[in-house]
Amino acid sequence: MSETPSSHRPRFRSATEEPAPVRIGLIAFVVLVLAVLVLAPLGVIFSEAFAKGWAAAWKALQSKDLQSAIWLTLVVAAIAVPLNAVFGVAAAWLITKFDFRGKAVLITLIDLPFSVSPVVAGLCLVLMFGANTMVGGWLVAQGMPIVFAIPGIVMATMFVTFPFVARELIPVMIEQGRTEEEAALTLGASGWRTFLTVTLPNIRWALLYGVLLCNARAMGEFGAVAVVSGKIRGKTATMPLAIEMLYNEYLSVAAFSLAGLLTLLALVTLLLKSVLEIRYADQLAATRRH
């Protein structure tokens, strides 16, 4: 009688597994490709940023223009992301709590920004609010220019990140159904109270997840913002736009230092995202979708 003490590797081929050499080969292949495609660019950002030492990188970030670029990016995200979060919650509430005609069309329209080039998005805003248009001209006359000013940057950012929160919330709220809200209503809770004490706690992690993705994209948006901002140094240049300008002026250390800051933001986003996925996977129906 042969003893194979609790070894999980049978001598014959398992029915639902590829043979070991194939498995190892595939793992090695995908890890290698990811290393070349994803890890190498990540490494090069920091090696370029610190090419002339830490001090040079730090000094480059102290320039007044870069400080204002960082500040502008934060301000834009601080306006655009909460607005999109409000939209996302409202849209998800509307879509999951009510039945109405044209729901599928509405969902398609919300998803539209995903299939529109950011540059085309920027173009649309220029054509709507540019100084030479009807609406834009009037707004400029009121002293409220949109294009080549901060409102335009905010709107461009909102356009490209528009679906993120709604997309994350809708599947979660569909899964949770309406019964808990109905129960709260029968117990005499008001609409707001129901939302704040029943719905919100159920969707908070999904909401945070959507906001996280929305924020990462908002702070990094380039194409749409490039078109509407006018790239006025120190005024309407966000961090990604400043990176482009520095890079084109061959100020490599400064460009990559700023890029390094945005990369840190991306890494923190990924870390938080992973934490959410591990800890609250059950509350993120759309864990794997974007």
Partner: peptide, 23 residues
């Protein structure tokens, strides 16, 4: 059926040891 491999022991089909026979 060959979907699971025994930790120990043998399976004989018509007297022939078939424990290691693949699915």
């Amino acid at each position: 059926g060959g979907l699971e491999y025994p930790t120990s022991g043998r399976v004989l089909f018509d007297g022939a040891d078939s424990t290691g026979l693949s699915v």
